[in-house]
Structures are given as C-alpha cells and as structure tokens.
Nucleic acid binder design. Structure first.
Lengths: 213, 213
DNA sequence: GTCGCTGTGTGACATTATCACTGAAGGCGC
DNA sequence: GCGCCTTCAGTGATAATGTCACACAGCGAC
C-alpha cells in the first residue's frame, strides 16, 4: 500500500514492454472451444475475433480484442482452470505481450493501476456481452443489420464485408442479410456491390435503427 | 492458496460479517437500466434476477445472483462510473452485505483471497453470458425449453413455473412455449397443469436437448 | 352463485431460418 | 483474349418462430 502513485502510472506500459512478445499470422486459430490455456495476453497490435460456434457450424461473433485489450477469456480460464468456452481467430497479423502467471499475480498485488485495468477490462466485456444478448434476443434482424452498417461504415460511407461476414457478426444467415440489403437498396438507402456496400441515406437508416419495437 | 494461509481463508466471511447489511423485500426492483450505483454488494440470502428489457417490453433473463455472489454489475458500474445496462428484481426477500468503496479497494489491495474471489466472480459471469449468447443465437427454442425443464425439475420431476415465466427465461414468448409443451405432452413426455409441469420421460427430453442442430 | 384476475389454448399472419439451387463477378493460368 | 474455378449473391419453397387478437378455463374474493 505504500506505493507511490507516479511510478504506478507507468506500470502497464512497463509490464507490456518487459514481457515477451508472441506473434501470430492473420486468419489463424488462436484457440478453440475446449482448449486450456497457459498465459495472460495483452494485445499489442492487430485484431482478434472471438466467437461461438454451434455443432451445426453456425457462428456468432462475441467480441473483438483490439490493441491494449487484455484477453479476458484467457485470464478467466487461467483463474478458474476451466476450458475456453469459445473460439478465437486472428483477423490480421497479431502481436501480443505474454505475461507469465506469477508476474500477473505480482502486478495484481502491487499495482493499483494494474488491478483497475484488469477489472475494467472484465467490466467492459460484461457490458459488451449484455449488449449483445439484448441485441440478439430483443432486436429485429433489420435493426441489427442497420446498426452493423452504421457502425462499420468508413468516412466515405462504405462498408467492406461480404453478406456472409455480416450474417456471422449479427447472428443471422446470409440469405436473410441479402434480402434485407436488397430491400434497402430498392428504397434507395444503400448501393450494393460485390464485397462492399455504400450508404446513401444515413438518416433513413438511423431512423430504422432507433425505432422502438 | 495454501491452507496454511489461515488468515487469508477467513478474509471473505470476515468482510461480509463486518459490513452493514441491507435488506430488500421480495418482488422489488433493485435497479433499472440507466441507474447509477454507489456500493459494492455481496448477497447473503435470497435470490436476484438480472434481465434486459427492450423498449417494447420484451425481456430476457441474463443471470441470477445467489448467496455468496458478488453483484458484478454493481462492481463494474462503480469501477467505470457507467450506468447499469440492465434491470434487477428480487425474487425473494434478500439481504446483502454493503461494502463501501474504500473498503472494497483496501481488501483488493491487501487480500489475495479477495482478489481471486472478485476475478472469479467476473469470470463466471462472463462464462454464463457467453453460454447465454450461444443458447439464444445458436440453439432452437425446443432445445432451450427442454434444457430449462431439465434444469429446474425437482427430484419429483416437477417444475413450478408458468408458461410466461419460462418464456422470459429462455427468451421466447408464451404462445411458443405453450405449443411446444403441448407437443411434448401429446408425445407423453410431460404432464401439464396450471403453473406446473411434471416430467414423465426424462431420457426422451435429454435426447432432444443434446441433439446436434 | 358472479366477478375478476391470471394462466392457457388457438387461429391467422409476419418475420426469420433452412434448404437447394442458380447465376454473376472476378482471379488466374494459358 | 479464353476457359476454368472459386467466391459471392439472388431466389423460391418450406419450416420454425414471433406477433396479434381473442376465447376460455381455473380459482379465489365477495
């Protein structure tokens, strides 16, 4: 407890800088359902998507791990000794700081900043997952699709994704996504092309996303 | 955690015993979406259900808080200063230990056991929520219904719940639950009565619950 | 008994998912 | 250029689930 605050501010970058770095190639599998795990990871660059898969092969994206994020599932598995309940793929080349268990526990003991960081990471994941449950269980496909489009549109109003990508991310299937996109297109709200969509009438889309059900 | 660490072993019960107790009546609202929060809570007795509600009034159960559980959402809100993303109702009379913020942070700093307890609580909630997303997004209503029945059946094979209760918990609607139950009943698997269901052929139900989709 | 509340049953219809295809767009070797 | 192949997108038929509107049954209060 007699820890001075100013060094504390630097603890997290220090920890990451001091740790060994692991690298993974794009489009690779980091872990699958049922795997066990051995290290705490903090993402340094790249992007990882974590999703659940049903026996029949249907998938839904749970969340993404972005630079600066701790891999909460890994941490959680390590603490409880349980197995991964989900699957993770790299979306790009990825590098991550590998923190051995003993170091993780020492930082947790010694650094207020590190404790806050870890607990906040957990809290954010929980909030994300609750939002996801709400979306999946309570919102219509049309609303989730529009929210997806608005979220991923670049400044030029373009979204680069196949219908299949979108379907997986919003927990639906390609055909349904295709049909809704076609309906939007017929109303003049979007323009569709192979692997990309251009938003034409953002305010109409926002109206749809915000409608009470 | 070696058992020789006897003071550590006692930290959690001590903390709970030393804290003030708050009591809440059954069927009351503890917090709603958008509320802010002020204390850390550890449940001592009773049961709390936490669920999300759509603008249209449809609900889905996120998880239950049972004795010994920390209220993870409260903790998470306090840490991040954000608002509750969900709603909580007492199912029974409830008593909870109220831990002021400063005490919570002190225990977190000084007790290995407390840190493990808090992180495990978070981890369990995350695992629960992932399982819920999988259920809602990837499993059929029939499977979720059967899993509900098997989970809540007493030793006598009875489930006490209305069709509406079941629908809310599995994220569906009363009519659909009624129709599936009726189908099960026609196949001789269950016997239905007002507010209660008796399971007659548990192995047939288990087959259905475990089927690949 | 009647009244009123809650729980359940049911039909018609809308939305979404599943299945089985077809065709279109683009990359690549030649 | 041309053909070949893979991936992406479109479509119709059917099944599963959700929505709406209503009828009726059980049960307690009175």
């Amino acid at each position: 407890m007699p820890e001075s605050d100013s060094p504390g501010e630097l603890v997290l970058p220090e920890i990451v800088a001091a740790a060994k770095t692991a690298a993974f190639a794009a489009n690779g599998c980091l872990f699958r359902q049922g795997d066990s795990c051995e290290n705490y990871l903090v993402l340094k660059s790249g992007s990882i998507k974590v999703f659940a898969r049903s026996p029949g092969g249907k998938e839904i994206l749970l969340y993404r791990v972005l630079p600066g994020d701790i891999c909460v599932l890994t941490t959680s598995c390590l603490l409880s000794g349980s197995r991964y309940p989900a699957e993770a793929l790299t979306e790009t080349d990825v590098s991550a700081a590998v923190i051995p268990r003993a170091d993780f526990e020492r930082h947790l003991r010694e650094s207020e900043e590190f404790r806050t960081f870890v607990l906040s990471s957990y809290g954010e994941r929980i909030a994300d997952l609750i939002a996801l449950v709400e979306q999946v269980a309570l919102a219509s496909i049309e609303q989730r699709l529009v929210q997806y489009l608005l979220q991923y549109a670049g400044t030029d109003g373009r979204v680069s994704a196949t219908h299949q990508d979108i379907a997986t991310e919003i927990g639906s299937v390609r055909e349904v996504v295709s049909r809704h996109l076609r309906a939007f297109s017929e109303r003049g709200w979007i323009d569709t092309g192979r692997g990309s969509i251009r938003l034409l009438d953002i305010s109409a889309l926002q109206d749809l996303a915000g409608e009470a059900q």
